[in-house]
Write a protein that binds this DNA or RNA. Structure first.
Lengths: 189, 189
DNA sequence: GCCTCGCCGTACACAAGTGTATGGTAGAGT
DNA sequence: ACTCTACCATACACTTGTGTACGGCGAGGC
């Protein structure tokens, strides 16, 4: 356990605060990320927060850093495990099936929205979003090329693929299961 | 001028407050819709607000009503003008080209995000979003069927079409113009 | 010429959140 | 045992926002 804080039950570290911050963001966007409510949620007072962070903006930066890494992770590691046994089509299929059914994924979807709305007024967040979008679409394009498409076709299809994934976080449609089946057919068939 | 308020320069009506509320929402989400900042933006005090609205929640409801109507309007009237001279393909093409290039459309995109993030915690907003999503997708499906697709294919394509439109409001991609050309080819070609 | 009424300003009490300064405490080191 | 240090609580001053009560003012009706 090479943690920043060595031990203790009530001992919090930066990661715990960031985690709670994303919980709050999933419910109410970046404006819901407030020091006092977070402290109550964690069972401590603001004194703890201002020990780990200079101010609220420092927490924002820590959130961005975490999201930047975690969002890349979501694309790479989560799909890549199982390694070479999977074909590109299987990996794309995995991507289509994982979001956003479970409660955990619903949280991820809300965070996606929150970060992107935040990025409309914060340049640092916008930069992170641009980066993640590039990383993801490049990955999708790569998979589609391995699946047999030429570079140009793969680029177009990657956008559609990504858009469809994001739409599940954004749209309020009725039959999500049916939609997912449709997508699989339209984008991979 | 059949306004609610007959005349006067500083005289505001409900519509003016709702308009300002959406401006605020486009910048900071539903949490940025606050009475005091709105009043300052409009050059009045809160006294005016609490004359037109019972409380802040009443403004929220007025916003939802306005969005519900305006969002349907965006689909119907905006594309349908020019009437019968346009083919279904031309109308779909119009839809693909209008969002979200102009500053006005950027505002609309931000509002879309704001409403949908809000809908994750407010049931009334969620209901409005569900309704609008149904209306829009039904319209897209209808156009695609008139374009020659059978009902089932049109439904699937309508989702992709809608998802691609929404992705422009959500994603931070580099070449929006290129993307739009690609979409036209992929979805209508 | 008053009076009502729509519309807005002002003032107040209250709540929630930020940041800061300072004090307390448990554990590890020596 | 003494101290140092990481971590947290407490108390304070400040800001921003909500809702409410009340007062003012100009335009029409009678």
């Amino acid at each position: 356990m090479s943690e920043t804080s060595p031990s203790g039950a009530t001992n919090l570290d930066v990661a715990a605060w960031v985690e709670a911050a994303f919980d709050a963001m999933a419910e109410g966007g970046i404006d819901a990320v407030r020091v006092d409510p977070l402290a109550k949620r964690l069972g401590v007072t603001r004194g703890s927060f201002y020990w780990h962070f200079a101010d609220r903006d420092a927490l924002y930066l820590a959130m961005l850093k975490h999201w930047r890494e975690g969002a890349s992770y979501l694309v790479y590691a989560r799909v890549e495990r199982g390694a070479d046994s999977k074909s590109p089509a299987e990996r794309l299929d995995t991507l289509l099936s994982l979001p956003y059914s479970s409660p955990r994924s619903a949280r991820a979807a809300a965070i996606e929205l929150g970060v992107r709305l935040w990025a409309r007024r914060d340049k640092r967040a916008a930069k992170a979003v641009r980066h993640i979008d590039r990383v993801r679409m490049d990955y999708f394009q790569k998979l589609l090329m391995q699946h047999g498409l030429d570079k140009d076709q793969a680029r177009k299809r990657a956008f559609l693929f990504y858009a469809a994934l994001m739409a599940e976080a954004l749209l309020f449609v009725d039959n999500r299961d049916q939609t997912r089946v449709d997508l699989r057919e339209a984008l991979l068939g």
